[in-house]
Design a protein around this nucleic acid. Structure first.
Lengths: 240, 240
DNA sequence: GCTCGGTCAGTGGTCTGACCACTTGACCAT
DNA sequence: ATGGTCAAGTGGTCAGACCACTGACCGAGC
């Protein structure tokens, strides 16, 4: 008997997601005033506090602007939203958005080497030890999903070593977008599972404190999976 | 007569900021359960819905975890918060945090050239036109704050040209952290105002569709101000 | 002695209905 | 044209109540 956990979204959660979708899909055009809180509560058949909680969260995300006495208006999320929105954009309605995925891979390819270089300058041998410990753990990991998550842990440690809060927060945002879709992507990445050599080389460069080499090694860590994913996303998009 | 707009924070806003500060400062240790909503409402002398709105926003930011029936616990914001937290970290209690500032400059130096390269590949002459229009506008700008904001507009357009949603959202987060502190930093950047040549060269590389040159040009755009700010931040930190 | 299944206090989730504070626009007096 | 007044509609806040859930406790049963 294979039971699945019951999902029990709170009312405010559902309103939040519904509003988010409507804004991102453009069903609520930019500049458009939202229905009043009372009206939303009435239409949705819920209480006003529930509407407000959802609305405040939407505002926190930068998708709408709430003005006391002046109504609530839709903002252009491309201009006003932050990176925290990314997870919700990558997968919406259970579907994975290929264009967003492509963008993530591009950004990762650009940022990853920089993180590796900083980590090489600041990490020291202790960091290299931690990285190699993860590589050793990956050696005995056969489940491909667990392997990918382990690779994320490798980067997690690396980002810590870079000692840069901005990169840390960026990584958090990217990770929380990427991690949930790993199971869906794992078949694409099957060939990469077990390729530990690039990770070892990167750890060695970190140990040596050699930033340029670390930068180059990071490229070799990222490129194979990046290319595989880009190809898959291109296929998903279909011939345009 | 120089009038300043009246700031009129809502109750929920104040609770939000107070909780955020307490979490970031570590006054509420990670893993610690928060007081219950009822208790918070009582202690703060406000209603429970107001507490809840603040709490939901804090949870949206990733600083706490709320479990139905199980209380609310503090999370490690370095692991769970996203880049949206950055503006609130850079300036807190009216004070500018030098370590965060340094981190922002580092990240900008790493990401900016990548954006320029992508923009060169994808932008085309139209993008170069827009960029040069901004440069022309900057020529006649004497107010240093306005000049810095104009420079941000330049990057805004450039990011659009890169056609990457991830970089777009990153830029939004960085900009909303940086822009509010421009007035405070403008004296440090006084020497840079009017240095338009790097911006012109970058626009030219974009027009030529020459990604490597654009990347190098971006470095020359970013380095002078970056170095000046890093020096200033180091001075703020004092001799360690 | 151990596990299982209730029980219950405390927590977050939701609702109702009321009032306050603010913005907006129309209208009016100056 | 300017500024004052007012009413309608909006978001902000409050109080109190009830529902749904978690976690710890505890006794019955093996």
């Amino acid at each position: 008997m294979a039971l699945r956990p019951i999902s029990r979204r709170s009312v405010a959660d559902q309103v939040f997601e519904q509003l988010l979708d409507d804004v991102v899909d453009g069903e609520l055009p930019v500049g458009e005033p939202l229905p009043s809180e009372r009206r939303l509560a009435e239409v949705l058949g819920i209480s006003r506090p529930a509407v407000r909680e959802a609305l405040q969260r939407i505002a926190q995300t930068g998708l709408v602007e709430v003005r006391h006495g002046g109504g609530t208006t839709v903002r252009d999320y491309r201009r006003s939203a932050g990176l925290d929105l990314l997870p919700r954009l990558l997968v919406r309605g259970g579907q994975l958005n290929a264009a967003i995925g492509r963008s993530i891979i591009e950004a990762r390819a650009e940022i990853g080497p920089g993180i590796a270089a900083l980590a090489a300058e600041r990490g020291g041998p202790g960091l290299a030890d931690s990285l190699e410990a993860i590589v050793t753990r990956l050696e005995t990991t056969t489940d491909p999903v667990a392997w990918q998550v382990g690779a994320l842990d490798y980067w997690d440690v690396l980002v810590d070593g870079a000692d840069s809060l901005v990169f840390r927060l960026m990584f958090n945002s990217l990770r929380s977008a990427y991690e949930p879709v790993v199971p869906a992507l794992v078949s694409i990445l099957a060939d990469e599972v077990g390729r530990l050599e690039p990770y070892r080389l990167l750890a060695a460069a970190i140990r040596a404190g050699d930033a340029p080499t670390a930068r180059a090694a990071a490229v070799h860590v990222l490129t194979p999976t990046g290319d595989a994913l880009l190809a898959a996303f291109a296929a998903m998009d279909g011939p345009r």
